[in-house]
Design a protein around this nucleic acid. Structure first.
Lengths: 240, 240
DNA sequence: CGCCGACTTGAGTCCCCTCAACAAGAGTGG
DNA sequence: CCACTCTTGTTGAGGGGACTCAAGTCGGCG
């Protein structure tokens, strides 16, 4: 809710997501135009960022932290539709009202753009429009891959897939590629269950089983040491 | 495999998907440029259109018929990722190799464009690029809605959702809005099972149960009479 | 007529869910 | 420092919904 003061001078140069986000292909001129309509917002872990039905005066890029996008049935059954990691985009051009809930799972910093002004830029600057299309197509592929997991994979395969995913994601940041890999889960058991289409108890049981089978070790609530990444990937049930 | 001769003179004017497909916003000039790089292809019911790993020299719009996009695990478990109905787009700009299988479920006619030439048009004509982005965002929403179904809905809710979907889709074409609504399923039981993340037996059993509960009547293998659409929608488990 | 594919129905099993109790921290305040 | 609470996670027992395996039905077609 408070303005983030963590990014020095708020400059796009030196921004951690400068080369991966919606602005990735912008030249200096385009970047300065974006810079004029942007502002940062920060959310605490667990804080709702957006509810379905809310007005969306802004679109945004995730600068740091992890958020989730989810959808809920009348009786409370919830399905997380995707993780929102640094450089991911929130909001849809041309849409004034949110259709999904967005929740900060850790402390999250967003780089927000006034929606109307962003839409104008989208029309005027092909570099933003082409990047927008590319990112949307990537998200579509990710959503479709997740449909296979939700529709067809077993609980064990789901957990293994998730761990392999987090492992791959954290490799981008950490360069240390030792055999035994330590990762920090960005989600609670409940958030993982919502993401994987399981219950919290099943998630917990599968973690225990993978530990007893020697594939992983647990280090507190959020720490996981992946003892054998290849074996874990084999458990994930690859597509043909 | 054979060139379609069903569309008179192959003209875009009078094309059944002229105002819904990727070309929806094109002016006369843009349309004639598309017209120069297009050709029709026809596939029989059950025929594979594309396998994962195939080269994709073309992108295409579905002109008529129903195709499915699916993904398969090593051991054969298959998940359909989406229906491809008239006006839907096949292929991804910038991608030379297919990542999903595409199968004709009924006789299908495609309007194909050379991929390289289409990509050039995408850069040059903003009307195509903006429509492409809009269609991709719509597909992303549809995929996310389906994730809720796959992850959280019961078999009965899945079938009810599917029937309501087909009913809504066929309403666009048929104007007759009688109380008792007759629809023709575009998929076999097996294809429905793949789409809904179920087995063929469970699909069959749920159809029988809905019939015994008086919500639908069955008319041969492919015909369904929806006795009470509102009740069916209530069974579909709406989101909040 | 007989075959074939698509569909239905039945019996039994299993994976995951539900309900419940318990454990392990992390704060909080006296 | 410790008692207390609250949140988060683990583990157990039992049940149910969907799956597996198997047999039977139906309609279309050569």
């Amino acid at each position: 809710m408070t303005i983030a003061l963590t990014l020095k001078a708020d400059g796009c140069i030196g921004c951690p997501i400068r080369h991966r986000a919606i602005c990735a292909r912008c030249d200096d001129d385009e970047l300065s135009r974006l810079e004029h309509i942007k502002h940062y917002r920060e959310f605490a872990a667990g804080e709702p960022i957006l509810w379905r039905g809310d007005d969306m005066p802004v679109v945004a890029s995730v600068v740091s932290g992890v958020a989730t996008m989810s959808q809920t049935l009348e009786d409370g059954r919830r399905q997380t539709l995707g993780l929102l990691l640094p450089s991911d985009f929130i909001g849809r051009p041309g849409r004034a009202v949110a259709v999904y809930d967005i929740t900060a799972e850790t402390k999250v910093v967003l780089c927000c753009f006034n929606r109307a002004k962003f839409e104008a830029l989208l029309v005027e600057t092909p570099h933003i429009a082409s990047r927008m299309l590319e990112m949307t197509l990537d998200e579509l592929d990710a959503a479709r891959d997740w449909m296979l997991l939700l529709g067809r994979k077993t609980a064990r395969e789901k957990i293994a897939t998730f761990l392999a995913l987090i492992s791959a994601r954290s490799s981008i940041e950490d360069a240390n590629d030792t055999k035994e890999k330590h990762i920090t889960l960005p989600l609670t058991r409940e958030a993982m269950a919502d993401y994987l289409g399981l219950t919290i108890e099943t998630v917990s049981r599968q973690f225990t089983k993978l530990r007893k089978d020697g594939l992983i070790e647990l280090d507190g609530k959020r720490g996981v040491i992946i003892a054998d990444l290849d074996a874990l990937r084999a458990e994930a049930g690859q597509d043909d």
